[in-house]
Nucleic acid binder design. Structure first.
Length: 921
RNA sequence: GGGCGAAUAGCUCAGUUGGUUAGAGCGCCUGUCUUACACACAGGAUGUCGGGGGUUCGAGUCCCUCUUCGCCCA
């Protein structure tokens, strides 16, 4: 890293070699490392990475998520914050266990063949060998995380945090063991939380079954159910007490078909009279709602489906499952039972029925409601705090419509089932002494003997939900529960959380709850929920659909920067990103094209600026700026301001809570990218660089030095603005700038600052305006040439009548205009007498006499069309101004603006009409 | 069943408290290998802002309603 690098740039940007050159240099020099001791004198800016599953492979969703985080962290790092991006992985209990169980299946074994200890050892070994590969893949796309702080939810350190959280919540009275119906995945063999049991809409069937009254075989009630197999566990039929159809039946018994068991008809307002027949069967052990009814009526709770989803007499169910059904899978049992019911005359009808069925979010198996003992967290007190920080503005969610979703979920929060009947995870820190049969012992440290009797103890078999470790992520990664940890003091609370809306409940709101509960502060002040990457049919990219894009393929083909640029430029707030997996060339053209363009700008510019030292712009002698110089410096100021406005504010101005005015602002990444792109491409390259060619062609001299200085400064500003999005190519180019200090990285350079309004002189402003007139003139000449099919290379005469800027000053622009538009320019106060094509602009009127080439009819037509359009707009405008109510009611500023506009249009209209007359209309 | 959101150019989307002749990128058409870049340059075309109604001096923007699509929750 000797700067500036004086080797000429290769004609083609070589992404692969640039990436492999710079990434290691950044890490070797600790560019991404945060230091808690520095955070005292600088604002910390902290993002914790949503930890990918330890077995995950990078997909384009990770690419998007991490690019967004990287853009923000790189921006704040340049802006002078002590920026920390904490990376890591999640042990992903069920998901990882499933992967290893699949391996075992292939070997013809099960986890039970190995036993708990050996199985856990095997998973740990698997994670050791293959886990965390995704973090290396994140490096390949340029992620500037502090890898020295890489965390893992199942590491010894974070396991301490998990145990602390469990014990503390237990001490707070928020952890309890409950006996109730929970979601059970028969394939994974574990319970699931409400959030882990996802709804899938399907068209099922609604079975109408007839239950005959015990005391009157001629009478019956018909119940409607989507799950006829559960009738074996029925203990009642419930009707709504208000439902007059059934008033006479309440308190009487019906006979359960197939088994002959008598069950009562009870009245319960849970029953919806409008659903089905208005009578529902009650199976307390196999339906959460039925369980509540069962409790209210003190009913028994026979279990007729076991943990594997097999129908049998599991518990309190003697005589309930006919021999023919014993041992059948629940879905086979459904078919069989319907046949039996039909044969028994108990099946009334089957209707198609659209409804939602819960599926396991890990293996998509239909979830079975199951009565069991589980550990729960009482969530309501936690939710209160999480609602509080949103209301106070300590926390905001972008896009803000998600705030309502967050509030709605928290207000209706239900207790969280945190125990899982798997082996891979943090074991529940509870011990039992069977000898004393005393209350369970909840402990921060392992208990090896009963404190009462000294006898053997056994630890709870269950492990904790993966999310019970990830909800601590914003502080467990910083050293909590060690309250004295330097990182915790320096970096908690963090700033922004970047993730997809899918895990708002799973993870985001739980992190807010845990942060508020354990540390008294929300873990971040901003939640940024980005869109989903979809294909051209708007389908989510997924492995099963085979419509995914491998980010590493894109990196190989076009480079990491092209990947990043494409995603960021397309990332409107809350908008999904559409990419075509079948046409990577087209999908990533924006990023690839922009990188190529930037490289070429840099190549050309650096070859002209050369390697000799350049003066800082502020040190240029007075009066050395040209109109173009003044203009590009003003454009740079605007670009900086636009980028800043699109990205910021980085944190609440008062350091505590967002004000209403601030709350929805910032994180418009696509607007930031567009502002930077427009500056470097449409302004710097298309206008400034082009206008500079004659000046740079000079051998030497003060004017060339001024041009070199401004050019180098403007490009330096552009590279700084772009570094967060495309860090590799900008770093490589920046190292070649003559003013780049030795031993410095762009990745650590200062974020550009726009000049204060007051520091720009009126003279410079006037110069910049002059360039506006220049642009207008060039555009007009080009337009005329194009319309009259004059070869672009052929020179034409142009007579310019200047109206909006000082004519004498404008005259000096003639050479620039001449070179940009290939024209010989004459400034005149009067229109030429010759027949000419003319364009009336805001600041100038341009006449191009094209003797013999002007098609009079065509020109008249063009002018007439323009007059008609302008005239129409003008009369509408005059009509508005003539409307007394408008003048009276509209704000004065608006009225003034409209008046000025009318005057301007009027004068343009007059010019156009004169022009037309001259052509002999 | 409840809630939220979207509907603007062929496509993907901007359009900040109502106030220029509604914009950008991609695509399309025409021309150009103008010695940085054809992954480029120059010029150009394209919208009754989903339908209907209302408020207002003024509506893409606010209200009502309908249609279509999407998301979340039960």
């Amino acid at each position: 890293m000797t700067s500036p690098d004086t080797n000429p740039l290769p004609p083609q940007y070589d992404a692969a070699s640039t990436e492999s050159e710079w990434y290691p240099r950044w890490t070797e020099h600790g560019v991404f490392m945060a230091d808690p001791t520095r955070a005292a004198s600088r604002e910390p800016f902290v993002i914790v990475m949503p930890p990918p599953n330890v077995t995950a492979v990078l997909h384009v969703g990770h690419g998007l998520n991490n690019t967004v985080q990287d853009v923000l962290v790189r921006w704040r790092r340049m802006a002078g914050d002590e920026a920390l991006w904490v990376p890591g992985t999640d042990h992903a209990g069920i998901a990882t266990q499933n992967v290893v169980e699949k391996q075992l299946t292939a070997e013809g074994r099960t986890r039970f063949d190995l036993g708990r200890e050996a199985f856990v050892g095997r998973v740990a070994e698997f994670v050791e060998q293959t886990g965390g590969e995704i973090l290396n893949q994140l490096k390949a796309i340029g992620s500037s995380a502090d890898w020295t702080r890489t965390a893992y939810t199942f590491s010894p350190e974070l396991s301490v945090a998990v145990r602390e959280a469990f014990v503390r919540l237990h001490e707070d009275g928020l952890v309890y063991k409950g006996h109730r119906v929970i979601h059970w995945c028969p394939r994974c063999g574990t319970s699931l939380s409400d959030e882990e049991a996802e709804f899938n809409d399907t068209t099922g069937k609604l079975y109408h079954l007839r239950y005959t009254l015990a005391d009157d075989p001629t009478a019956s009630v018909v119940v409607a159910t989507t799950r006829p197999e559960t009738m074996l566990g029925d203990v009642a039929v419930a009707v709504n007490p208000e439902d007059e159809r059934y008033t006479a039946f309440i308190g009487r018994d019906v006979v359960l078909p197939l088994t002959g068991i008598r069950i009562p008809i009870v009245a319960d307002s849970y029953t919806d009279a409008a659903f089905g027949t208005g009578a529902v069967k009650i199976t307390p052990a196999h339906d959460a709602n039925d369980f509540e009814v069962g409790k209210r009526h003190a009913l028994r709770m026979p279990v007729v489906i076991d943990a594997e989803g097999v129908v049998r007499e599991v518990e309190d169910a003697a005589g309930r499952v006919p021999a023919a059904l014993q041992g059948l899978d629940r879905f086979e049992a459904r078919t069989a039972i319907v046949k039996l019911l039909e044969a028994a005359g108990a099946l009334v009808k089957i209707d198609p029925h659209p409804h939602s069925v819960r599926h396991c979010y890990r293996c998509d198996t239909v979830v079975e409601p199951r009565l069991s003992d589980q550990w729960f967290v009482r969530m309501q007190p936690l939710a209160e705090k999480a609602l509080g920080v949103l209301r106070s503005g300590e926390l905001r969610i972008l896009p803000d419509r998600w705030e309502a979703v967050y509030v709605n979920w928290l207000e209706g929060i239900r207790d969280w089932n945190i125990s899982r009947q798997i082996w891979w995870g943090h074991r529940v820190p509870v011990w039992y002494c069977d000898a004393c049969a005393q209350t369970p012992m909840v402990s921060r440290t392992d208990i090896t003997a009963c404190p009462t009797c000294g006898g053997a103890v056994r630890q709870d078999e269950d492990v904790l939900d993966t999310w019970f470790s990830s909800w601590l992520w914003p502080f467990s990664t910083l050293g909590w529960p060690n309250e004295n940890a330097a990182d915790l003091a320096a970096f908690y609370p963090g700033d922004v959380l970047v993730t997809a809306p899918e895990i708002l409940f799973f993870w985001v709101s739980r992190m807010v709850m845990s942060g508020c509960w354990f540390l008294g502060k929300a873990p971040f002040h901003t939640v940024y929920l980005h869109g989903t990457v979809r294909d051209m049919q708007h389908r989510k990219m997924s492995k099963s659909l085979g419509n995914g894009i491998d980010p590493l393929d894109v990196v190989k083909l076009y480079g990491a920067d092209a990947l990043r640029w494409t995603m960021v430029a397309g990332l409107g707030l809350g908008v999904d990103v559409m990419l075509d997996p079948t046409d990577l060339d087209k999908s990533f053209a924006p990023g690839r094209n922009f990188c190529t363009k930037l490289w070429n700008i840099g190549r050309f510019l650096l070859s002209r600026v050369g390697t000799d030292p350049v003066l800082p712009v502020s040190a240029l002698p007075a009066g050395s700026l040209t109109a173009a110089d003044a203009w590009i410096l003003a454009r740079l100021d605007s670009a900086i301001a636009e980028c800043e406005a699109a990205l910021g504010p980085a944190r609440p101005a008062n350091g505590v809570a967002w004000t209403d005015a601030e709350r929805g602002r910032g994180l418009r990444l696509s607007e930031y990218a567009e502002a930077a792109r427009r500056f470097v491409w449409n302004e710097l390259a298309d206008w400034y660089l082009e206008s500079l060619k004659p000046r740079l062609a000079a051998e030497s001299g003060a004017d060339k030095d001024a041009a070199r200085a401004v050019l180098a400064h403007a490009f330096d500003g552009a590279l700084r603005l772009l570094q967060p999005i495309i860090p590799f190519i900008t770093e490589a180019l920046w190292q070649h700038l003559p003013q780049t200090p030795a031993e410095q990285f762009l990745a650590q350079a200062a974020w550009p600052v726009a000049r204060a309004e007051s520091s720009v002189s009126d003279a410079e402003r006037a110069l910049a305006a002059l360039f506006g007139a220049t642009q207008e003139t060039v555009a007009a000449i080009r337009q005329i040439k194009s319309e009259y099919n004059v070869a672009p290379g052929a020179s034409v005469q142009a007579i310019v009548c200047v109206t909006g800027v000082p004519a004498e000053a404008f005259a000096a622009q003639a050479p620039v205009i001449g070179s940009l538009a290939r024209a010989v320019v004459t400034v005149s106060s009067e229109a030429p007498v010759d027949v000419a094509a003319s364009i009336v602009g805001q600041l100038v009127t341009v006449h191009v006499p094209l003797a013999g080439m002007i098609d009079m009819d065509k020109e008249r037509q063009r002018l007439s069309a323009e007059i008609a359009q302008l005239d129409g707009a003008l009369s509408a405008l005059l009509g508005r101004l003539g409307n007394e109510k408008f003048v009276a009611k509209a704000p004065p500023a608006v009225v003034e603006g409209e008046k000025a506009k009318a005057a301007e249009w009027q004068s343009r209209l007059t010019s156009l009409q004169q022009q037309l007359e001259k052509l002999g209309a």
